[in-house]
Nucleic acid binder design. Structure first.
Lengths: 211, 211
DNA sequence: GTCTATATACAGATAGAC
DNA sequence: GTCTATCTGTATATAGAC
């Protein structure tokens, strides 16, 4: 591995775990086993180094929609849920970093945030189109609103991943919940599609007094 | 407002928006319109100031479970969802800050993270107990698993709030999704537990989007 | 390309006048 | 309590030897 890449990798790691301000060039240099001056020889300034590190993060953010071919609608939804979850779980350091940037609205990484948002949008739109197709073909019940259901499924996934982030312990809870989410989605997409529309079924409006 | 409070408020704001490392005492002093030395006179060190700011954030983190009395199970679930969402939305700066600390696993704020996690747990457990009670009384369908369903609802809420964070623009999308989530939960909790319960059909609350 | 040495700025923190 | 002046360490960045 070239010296430049060594520096870049060290910088990416440090920036992602400690943030921009809390990471010094001296730390980067030490981690990369070079001198401070060499870091600035390759990357004009700390700012430039940071931007280069961002690009390093962006590289793996791609999505392959081809894997869904040949599956029925239910399997497609299942697979998309699993893929999204696994993808984010596999890139937790990057995700942490991006989330950190998002949270503090850092202007220097607007591009990164936009890129990740776009990727998120791709997943959500893909899920939406699967649901749409399922509805058109009457495979899914009529009360499914593709855009909204897709958005909520993604929200639930992001919530689980957030929990995964807060409790990085190998708590099997979150993994179980992913399975439970898939079951729940399946029930919703399966449930009595031929029955009358149940989307307008609500409980009694008048409060029932408790004992 | 006393000088100490003025400093504390400025510090809390800066720490929450820029993070610990990127916030200097000079910035805090300028924001509070005092000298650097005075900041350190009130708060022994930057570290102490930070911890004091954390306490400032913790104060509003309380929950009032009394508001659920007198509501039936469905209304309780609805209200809990709304309350949790509104609470977090009303404390977005604090939440951003906490999330930032969580994301970078900052040791100095482990106490804050623990406190917020505990609060989250309270909400989730409250929701779980509502679902449990509903199941015991056969108001909710038998396929409901209180713990898992509660966790997923909370995850979905957190996902929505995360989205709210990323797109702070007044996009009505997220707010609509909250309503849709409540409908979806209601359908799940209502659906055909007993056919008698489906008699309570009212006109759709919101217009349906047809593709 | 890689280093040491150094310039310059700013950080957190202290001393002491008022 | 509040300030100015200052100390000390460390940050980014540059200069120049090799």
């Amino acid at each position: 591995m070239g010296t430049r890449e060594k520096i870049l990798e060290a910088a990416a790691w440090l920036f992602s775990t400690r943030g921009y301000a809390a990471t010094s060039l001296a730390q980067v240099a030490r981690a990369a086993q070079v001198s401070k001056a060499l870091v600035l020889w390759y990357f004009e300034s700390k700012e430039h180094l940071f931007r280069a590190a961002l690009q390093h993060f962006l590289t793996p953010y791609e999505i392959d929609a081809q894997v869904l071919l040949g599956l029925n609608e239910y399997e497609q939804v299942d697979k998309l849920i699993d893929d999204y979850y696994d993808f984010v779980a596999d890139h937790l350091p990057s995700v942490k970093f991006v989330l950190g940037q998002v949270v503090r609205g850092d202007e220097t990484s607007a591009e990164l945030v936009a890129h990740v948002s776009a990727l998120y949008g791709v997943y959500r739109d893909l899920l939406t189109s699967i649901l749409e197709r399922g509805c058109e073909r009457h495979v899914f019940p009529a009360y499914i609103k593709p855009a909204q259901d897709a958005a909520l499924i993604m929200a639930a996934l992001n919530g689980l991943l957030l929990q995964h982030l807060v409790e990085p312990e190998g708590s099997p809870m979150v993994r179980d919940l992913r399975t439970y989410l898939k079951q729940l989605v399946r029930v919703r997409l399966c449930a009595a599609s031929t029955q009358a529309d149940t989307s307008c079924v609500v409980p009694p409006a008048s409060p029932r007094r408790e004992a």
